[in-house]
Amino acid sequence: MTIVVGYVPKPEGRAALRAALDEADRRAESLHVLNTSRGDALVDPSYASPQDLEDVRRLLEEAGVEFDLEHRVGGRDGAEEVVEAAEKQNASLIVIGLRRRSPTGKLIFGSNAQRILLDAPCPVLAVKAPAGEAAGHLH
């Protein structure tokens, strides 16, 4: 079985990655780390840079879990990608990070987390970034 984690290069994404690592350890399962972009904007802060991705890879390798890193431009929302990956991998768990969003933002763009919760084929673990974490390092 596999744990699917939706990674974004932001505090909540790093929190999700750490939580997913803990879970993978506990359950002795592999990790499928997913970072995608709809790719329709010139700049997408959720899309990891090659360097950031390298950091993620190093962290995963140091942790010694079996992992898979999926990083691509897909033309679809993050929520859809995560749910689809979970279905494809027959995942036992989805791990996502939560962030605050204004009510208007929710109205227009919806909440990725909510969509994942509703559509997920498996249990979902949602974590928040620890309070006061600077947008900084993984370690």
């Binding site: 972009s37 790719g39 991705l53 890879r57 898979d68 890193l69 999926e70 691509r72 431009v73 897909g74």
Partner: peptide, 10 residues
């Protein structure tokens, strides 16, 4: 360990 890293842009 495998990894799929696609660029998507050409």
């Amino acid at each position: 360990m495998s990894s799929v890293v696609g660029d998507g842009t050409s």
